[in-house]
Design a protein around this nucleic acid. Structure first.
Lengths: 222, 222
DNA sequence: ATATGTTTCATACAGTTGTTTGAAACGTGT
DNA sequence: ACACGTTTCAAACAACTGTATGAAACATAT
């Protein structure tokens, strides 16, 4: 009957998180997970049945933690959609760049986005769908009413795509961008400003990106 | 001395391509590769030393083939940068979506972008850097002259990020977008048009995306 | 204290993996 | 026809994997 805060279970869940995150599902071994969790090898099979189910539960656990650790700000009735979009982008980036530091959850989420191991229907329904719906609603406020749905989907993916890119291709980025610039101009806050401006401009708020670029060159000039 | 068009070598290289592409480095087995190539199991070790070196050579081979199979169009002196950007995006998407059909090279490239197995310095220098340089030059023609370099990097990544997203998250996309819409509105040509319009609008060619959206809703209306 | 259900443990098992081996087959120049 | 370097082959090896097992340790309620 004691089940909820079972120490071995959560210890296993945590250890599995780190290991899965930086080894991937295949290269991660049950043995390493158990060693790290300081539990017996058989514990995985006892508590989760097999490696695959442990993985799924770890994924769900990871999303839960990240989503509540970096929540979306509350918006009032009259928050302008531009502000909402800015918030959304910054939240998304922070959730992703969270992985840079200690917690492993974001890294794990990214991995699953990119090379899905399970069919992850449950994951999509529980976390990704609602998240995407919010973005779609914001976009709905920013485009003409007649804009077809598929077009709004494309816009959503254009925005999300920008965010994801920085997280996933950090190694590629480091091969292309000089090191000094990375430290200074590719942190979460700066990137959020860039992506927001870029996307708002694309959506017919032309001032945003042009003004933003002007600001930058003025900063440089001084 | 016979080395260049060694039949087993290239057969191995091709088979390795397909297998690595849809299984990934870890899950791909030397056995499957050899079976598919119709060569003996020991051939990999004889010709390439080990699995890792086979992988690297496969990667280089893949890039070479894709880049020459889907080349950038030639531009004249007075090709407008808007056109160049459109071409660049379409080429990139076609290279990526190429993977949908027979050839495996693009899938493989994507995999390596996302979860690099090797440090792939050679890859970055030979293929990715020059490719990125072209994009940076196009962007240079589209933004104010004073725009700082890091900002142009960010813009480049915003564009590339959009393209990559569709390729990598096709499974995620399928979970979010209704099936009928995918077939009709998420092919390479349509996506290229969307991303081009979106990005040009962001870069202060506001007409592009607004006009594009208008066109869409008019098409719907009829 | 005893019994019962739960959790942990050490160990073993069966399968798959990359890699090695040594002999056979092949091609080529003499 | 011979010899020699190259390439192929079947078979085996050693290491590692996820999983199963059955006994021990534990907790809890009667």
């Amino acid at each position: 009957m004691p089940n909820s805060d079972d120490s071995t279970r959560v210890r296993l869940l945590d250890a599995a998180g780190t290991v899965f995150a930086d080894r991937g599902f295949d290269k991660a071994t049950v043995r390493e997970i158990c060693t790290r969790a300081d539990v017996n090898l058989a514990a995985v099979n006892y508590h989760f049945g097999d490696k695959a189910r442990l993985y799924v539960e770890t994924l769900l656990h990871a999303h839960e933690v990240v989503f509540e650790q970096v929540p979306l700000p509350k918006w009032s009735e009259d928050t302008p959609p531009q502000q909402k979009l800015a918030d959304f982008i910054e939240t998304m980036l922070q959730r992703m760049l969270l992985a840079r530091s200690l917690p492993w959850q974001a890294r794990l989420m990214m991995r699953e986005f990119v090379a899905p191991t399970t069919d992850c229907r449950e994951l999509a329904e529980t976390y990704i769908q609602p998240h995407n719906r919010i973005l779609m609603e914001i976009i709905g406020e920013l485009v003409p009413a007649e804009t077809p749905e598929y077009s709004r989907f494309q816009i959503a993916f254009s925005i999300v795509g920008q965010c994801m890119f920085y997280k996933m291709n950090s190694s590629l980025m480091q091969a292309l961008v000089p090191e000094e610039q990375i430290a200074e101009h590719f942190g979460p806050a700066t990137l959020a400003r860039h992506i927001t401006a870029f996307s708002l401009a694309a959506l017919g708020q032309p001032d945003h990106f042009q003004k933003y670029l002007q600001t930058l060159s003025e900063e440089i000039a001084t």
